[in-house]
Design a protein around this nucleic acid. Sequence first.
DNA 1: GCCAAAAGAGTGTATATACTCATAAAAGTA
DNA 2: TACTTTTATGAGTATATACACTCTTTTGGC
Lengths: 145, 145
Amino acid sequence: MKDFSDPAACACFNLRKAARAVTQHYDEALKPCGLRTTQFSILAVLARLSPAPVARLSGALVMDRTTLTRNLKPLVGQGLVAILPGADDRRKRNVSLTAKGRKAFERALPHWQAVQKEMIGRITPTRWQRLEKDLGHTVRAAAES
Amino acid sequence: MKDFSDPAACACFNLRKAARAVTQHYDEALKPCGLRTTQFSILAVLARLSPAPVARLSGALVMDRTTLTRNLKPLVGQGLVAILPGADDRRKRNVSLTAKGRKAFERALPHWQAVQKEMIGRITPTRWQRLEKDLGHTVRAAAES
DNA sequence: GCCAAAAGAGTGTATATACTCATAAAAGTA
DNA sequence: TACTTTTATGAGTATATACACTCTTTTGGC
């Protein structure tokens, strides 16, 4: 049982390592847009769900609620995202994409497509298809506690 | 080509998402030891390579050199790791596991094994075996720039 | 309507991540 | 040897991550 005796086989370590390695390429590619990968992902989710309360977004991103709150700060600072109190429920904060934010997202899209194509090409489309499924399964497996 | 038009298919986003989800379990499991997953990983690598200069360790961890420097700080603070100037080359800083650090690592090992077993069980050993290979390939693919 | 419980969200604190720039020492070269 | 280049590293800054705690508002039970 190598998997349970050799820390180099650590599932967490290997996932984080791969995430670090890949993130650097995406961040580099999105640099001309003034966006990080995480920020692009948030805008992408918002493009579909805006406006939506914080908890709904953090669920969609599989990101801790408080993490999302912090991550929204620079986006709000840049005027790409606006946060408004909910009309029906004053506890809720509705996060929405501004016009500027939607433009920034659309400008970033081709840059993302380029690096995505490049990276999947390197990984190999076949392997990536498999990997994406396995990652999705992993997220669900981790979340089911 | 769904992979190049739907940001939800983003390789980076999916990797980071899975890393986040899994990290929470490992951090929770290692909490009684006073270690985070990243710290455990560093100790595990040091258990094999200690003493080693910063650049050598960051290479082994596929972690940015400056990131490792920051990550070492709390470990040094807890006395688990010591950093000494190189005798041969005064530019180098040799990072080494202290006796206390080795003990902390050995105490943490069973906790890691438990969560590793639990997580691989959830993911499924077959899928994990495949995933680990694919992650390794991804790291190499990303690094070959 | 009153009050306890639950839901939605922010803050304090600490770690994780990495780019840019600065520093110092070793190695190479004329 | 003096000068340049390369190597090893740290510091400044900014974002990413999340647990514990707190605050406010809503909801449910009576």
